[in-house]
Every structure is written in structure tokens, then in C-alpha cells.
Amino acid sequence: MKSPTLLVLTSLVLTGCGANNSPPQTPIPGEKTSAKMRTLETGAQLIQSRPPVDAISAYLDGFHFYNGDKNGQMEAHHYVTVLNEDVMQAVIYDSNTKDARLMGVEYIISERLFKTLPPEEKKLWHSHQYEVKSGSLVAPGLPAMADKALMSKIVNTYGKTWHTWHTDRDKTLPLGIPALMMGFTGEGQLDPALLADRDRRLDVNTQDIKRARQNIIAHPVIKGANAWEQGEVIQLKRVPGAGEHAHGDTGFGQAEQTRKANN
């Protein structure tokens, strides 16, 4: 049975709305979708089930920047699935329309789980306290009660975000390697023009939202998160081989050799 918190995030959240007002800005190459492909798409929608997609229960709109480049800022439309009381996951798009480009993913964990991470892992994660309390993270269309319940759950969580399609930099295809993203942690960091444009399109007022969230309790940020503030900048680099994901002697390669020998 779902906990009260999960019920809030999967029932109250689903009563909200807010979409189809922020189209993608980056064109993509390719021919117009054919009638045959559209027919196949429609048929698949009617016949096939999509449990992972149907499990998405919340829409959040916020902002990210490239770890190591605070001026590389962009709006991020999050579609969130609650996995359990301590773990959520989000698919991130560059818009909230049907033709949105899938930009990346964010994994969201509770304060309790974040405390258990090793120091090097914590450097990959960012806090959500400021995003919630400042009003820069919003849940478009949610009634006030549901918004407060949702944000009270998110405020003390931590996120690890990877962007795979850099549409903010006019990348018409998902070129290059994924980038680690961070969230804002203080006043004066987020481009006010970016925020004002978001508020206009989504018909929200960040300052009103900030005032409404004053009594949401935000804990001090745990040491290790937001490592960029201490100059710890981490990004991926192309390297030969499997990098940190190599298995070594006890991994898949050895197991496969053993399997073949036994056969």
C-alpha cells in the first residue's frame, strides 16, 4: 500500500495541468513524418501498454547549468516518477509539447540516502533547497495544497542530472557526450531574463511562489553536495576502453570465458 506521501504525489499531482505552452526552439534534421509512420504510431498507442510512462505523476519546471559553466543555463521540463519514499526519477525535456526533445535524466534521492553516499559520489549531486525555497522550481497547474505537499517532499532531496542532448547550444542532434548538470544555490545566479520568460509562458509568479513556500522547512545542505561551489568541477571525458565501468578479471569477460569452457 502506498504511503500518505506517495498518495499525495500520485493523486493530487495528477489533478494538475500545465503544458503545451513552451515549444522546442531547436530544429532537427529529417523528413516530415510519413502517413504510414503516423498510422503505425497510432496503432501502437492503442494496442501497447506503457507502464513506465504511465507511472509519471508530476511535471516540474526548473533550471540547470553545466557543471563548470554557470553561464550555460537552460530551462528543464521534468516528468517525474516516484519509485518509493526515498527515490524518484525524472525524464527531462527542452519543452512541454508533444515534439519536445529528450534532454536527459535526473535521479532524485532523499536526504537519508544522500548521507550514505561516499564522498566522491556526493560531488555528482546537487541540492534542491534553494530551488524550492526560491520559487524557481515550479509544478505548473497544481493547486496550492498539492504544490506545498510536493515541494515539502522535494526540498531536502538531492539530484544527479545528466543532459544528453544540448539543445540550448543549438545542437540539432544529440551530439557529443553527456554533461553533468547542477542546480542553482543562491540569489543572483540564475539569469533573470530566463526566469521572466518562463514565468510569462507558464503564467506563474516566482516571487509569489517564494512567499507561499516560506514555511516549508529546508535543512542545511549536507557537505559534499554542490561541489562546484568549492571548485570541484566534474565532467565526462572520452577515454579508450570501458573506464570505471570495466569489469576486470571477475567481470563479464571472465564469466563469458568460463561459460564457454563449461559448454
Rank of each mutant, 00 (worst) to 15 (best):
P4L: 15
V8R: 00
T10I: 00
S11I: 12
S11Q: 08
C17Y: 14
N21I: 15
S22W: 14
I28A: 05
E31K: 01
E31T: 06
T33F: 03
T39I: 07
G43I: 13
G43H: 06
Q45G: 02
L46M: 15
Q48A: 15
S49Q: 12
R50H: 14
R50T: 13
S57W: 05
A58I: 12
Y59N: 07
G62R: 00
H64G: 01
T81D: 05
V82E: 02
L83N: 03
N84A: 13
E85W: 13
D94V: 11
T97D: 11
D99T: 07
R101N: 15
L102W: 12
M103F: 10
V105T: 12
Y107W: 09
I109W: 07
K122G: 11
K123Y: 11
H126D: 07
G141M: 13
A144L: 13
A149E: 02
V155G: 01
N156I: 07
G159N: 07
K160Q: 13
R169A: 15
K171C: 15
L173I: 14
P174N: 13
A179G: 12
F184C: 11
G186R: 09
D191A: 13
P192T: 10
L194T: 05
L194F: 10
L195G: 01
D197G: 06
R200G: 05
V204T: 14
V204N: 05
I222S: 01
I222F: 00
K223V: 15
I234L: 08
Q235S: 08
Q235K: 07
G243V: 14
H245N: 15
A246R: 09
G253V: 11
K260N: 10
K260T: 11
